[in-house]
Amino acid sequence: MTAVSNADTSLILRCQDNDAAAFNEIVARYKNRVYNYICRTVGPGADAEDLTQETFIRAYMNIKSFQSRATLNTWLFRIATNICIDHQRKVKRIQSNIVPLQREDADNEEDVQMDIPDTRYNPEDMLLTKELNKELSKALLDLPEKLRTVILLHDIEGLAYEEIMEIVDCPLGTVKSRLFNARQTIRKKISHYLNSSV
């Protein structure tokens, strides 16, 4: 963790000295994590990729204002979170008769997941795993934004409580209770899978 932070710090210092290669390295290091987080927040598709690009553009533009008290990880996820919130507000405003996101996105997601071979299970298990993935993705998209942000950052991106506190700007108790509520909601939604012991 410290080694990663040190490497990130040196990359940022190089970026602040106008080293373009250093920024490319940051992009290479974080693009899939940020994209995955955005896909889980707004649903996969062209929008998610555009928002990921916007995240890196905003990071690039503001790299000189970056303060070393935050980690690069936290900073990027904070930018991505704000961009997703803005995007969702915009979508809500523009489309008054919007089709529920999860229905539209679940189809796209199915296509994406079809491309990922998983040889760990037999075909029946694979089908069940695919179904479960779909169910989980839907459950995540259905969560209220505040709960979803916390569970994505902690359980999928593996960020610590303290980092999440900084990203969502909430005290520790709030982060813990949001995480509990999010996990509890997801658990209830996939309880039939849990009971059938996948």
Binding site: K31, N32, P44, E49, D118, S137, I151, V198
Partner: peptide
């Protein structure tokens, strides 16, 4: 299950 959920990756022309 959340930890093991399949991850999305950016397209080839992202960079």
């Amino acid at each position: 299950l959340l930890h093991d959920i399949s991850a999305f990756e950016v397209s080839a022309d992202f960079d």
